[in-house]
Design a protein around this nucleic acid. Structure first.
Lengths: 344, 344
DNA sequence: CCTCCTCGTGGAATCGATTACACGAGGGAT
DNA sequence: ATCCCTCGTGTAATCGATTCCACGAGGAGG
């Protein structure tokens, strides 16, 4: 592959001049510029990003470590992150932690070794020493969706508390009293927060959340299935299951279906995170929708702010309840389909 | 950030010796090794991947350019690719082309600039000069899922012909005669092949595929909606719509639902690519399942073979029909749920 | 005791870029 | 005519690693 030296030779100039042309530095003659550009053309030269980054100490690359690529929520987040980053002149390297702390660490390490300019993380756990050290050492970092308390890093997230309250009110109005939740891992903020919000909302209606109605999941489909099975085996099964993410809701549907039961007649279902498929499931699933695209974009802006020396603020955006039929009547006039693809 | 020089100083040795320890070169004394390791520990040193790659001319990184991250099929592909690559000691950088040729080019260029060791592509179009040049110039490359004819690059893909024939036989048996297809872009091999296979299978039953029953889609949900609307507006609408991918099937469901019609009573639906949600849609969707994980793994192995100087062979794996209820009776005894997550 | 190897180590070149500094040519002000 | 800037260019240092080559110490063999 042609290097800058080859271009210099071909153009009959020094590498310094070639470099100046390529970075359009002002003091270079029109003649030199033309010759360099011609040489670049004929050699098909492309600058070596590694060499450039080594010298300039910046990669114009962001690392994004997400908890699970197979989760449509994170997939959409990744898409909006890449889009916004590209608009700001950055590339993104995605690492998929698959909800496994050791994999998360692997990716953080690899990204740091590559000297990315900044890191966007949705932590799977309480934070490994590696990540905490990196944050303390001054690596620009922003938490997105989930975060780690006690670390001085901006957090871009969605607040589901009001939406959860709306959900519980909706369930209560329909007549449900025995409400259960499939929780996410206690090591994650979203895992804890959603349970807390749920419990607080129940209390407003004078309801309890007994221990047997809190199932421990891990944000993946298998755990949703397992926990739902447990609920259905109880002497007094819940009337509603609220899954703390969409994959566990998928698992819950699997479990219900495997027993030949029906939603919402035999048991009602609601989920955190709205995805396009929830419109077409049997029945359409009532869900709490996060402003995913906006979160991704805000996270990138906060991170780039930090990288470029500006403060970089935390952002919290509200989630909202989308009522469909999976919790029973009343059916709303027309449940809107979550909007994808087109960014207005 | 500490460099190898700092480690050398801390250990009281030269950078050469430090480097030898780090790459566990045989000729280094036990004493030196201990001192270097201690220095690495206290400084929290991590080698700079950029510098290393610049010197050794290899990044141990694979580029993967996929057509659309929001498509669960590609998402699963990406996951299996990363998994296999990691097992072989490689990292993966994913570029999302979003079915747009110019974005695909952007990512290929960026990846090439980073001097990735090899490229895995699922081309969105007939191939830009950039990509063809790279292939000709000897960049190790493998096509996955889709490919470009006339380029000397191994292809790892799934053959759906037999499964499409099974599907058409199934539809014919049920009594359907007017079958339509939502095709993918003609610029992609999968776009063309699926139409061809469908037409050939119809012919075996003495059926035609009229032009009005071929809708031009782009593998994204919006086009599925649009095309299905067109079908439903025909004087004689088809009895079955076969969507060439899962997102267009989602769009088709949207369109049918918007008119207050029912699947399969008013119109039947089948799709290429099976995903977990198809089990729980209303009704469960009959689909053609690709061995996605196996494809991703085979593609990585082929690419790594090329990179490491071995031949690197093309692979074709069969797809299979999964019958559910979206095409009407007969209902199979129990339609299996596609397996995710766990790799056996 | 001398010679020859082997082993462990360090010096320095190298990868491909960027950039500080030096330098010569040309033009304007004095 | 002299001085001083500005402009365009080139030389060389530098980023952080790897690796070829040279070198000194020590052991084996004659």
């Amino acid at each position: 592959m042609a290097s800058i030296k080859d271009v210099a030779a071909q153009a009959g100039l020094s590498v310094a001049t070639v470099s100046r042309v390529l970075n359009d530095h002002p003091s270079v003659s029109e003649d030199a510029r033309r010759r360099v550009l011609a040489a670049v053309q004929t050699l098909g030269y492309r600058p070596n990003a590694l060499a450039r980054s080594l010298r300039t100490d910046q990669t114009r690359t962001l690392g994004l470590v997400i908890s699970d690529v197979m989760n449509p929520y994170f997939t959409e987040l990744a898409r909006s992150v890449e889009e916004e980053a590209r608009a700001l002149g950055y590339s993104v390297i995605i690492g998929n932690a698959d909800e496994r702390p050791e994999l998360q660490d692997h990716h953080v390490r690899t990204l740091l070794d590559r000297r990315i300019d900044g890191l966007l993380v949705s932590p799977t756990d309480g934070g490994s020493p590696l990540m905490l050290d990196a944050a303390r050492a001054g690596t620009p970092m922003v938490f997105v969706d989930r975060w780690i308390p006690g670390v001085d890093v901006p957090v871009v997230r969605s607040d589901g508390q009001a939406a959860v309250r709306d959900l519980v009110a909706h369930l209560h109005r329909i007549g449900h009293r025995r409400l259960a939740i499939i929780a996410g891992p206690a090591a994650t903020t979203t895992g804890r927060e959603r349970v807390d919000a749920f419990r607080a909302a129940l209390r407003e209606h004078g309801l309890e959340l007994p221990g047997t109605y809190i199932g421990q999941g891990d944000f993946q489909a298998g755990s949703g299935r397992r926990v739902t099975d447990g609920f259905l085996d109880l002497a007094e099964p819940p009337e509603v299951v609220f899954a703390a993410d969409n994959l566990m809701a998928l698992g819950a549907l699997d479990a219900v279906r495997a027993r030949g039961l029906r939603v919402p007649d035999d048991i009602a279902l609601a989920a955190f995170d709205d995805i396009p498929w929830f419109v077409h499931t049997d029945p359409p699933v009532t869900a709490i929708a996060q402003p995913t695209g906006a979160l991704g974009r805000a996270a990138v802006r906060a991170l780039v702010d930090r990288i470029e020396g500006r403060p970089g603020a935390s952002v919290t955006l509200p989630a909202r309840l989308v009522v469909r039929r999976s919790c029973g009547e009343p059916v709303p006039p027309q449940s809107p389909s979550p909007v994808r693809r087109s960014t207005p």
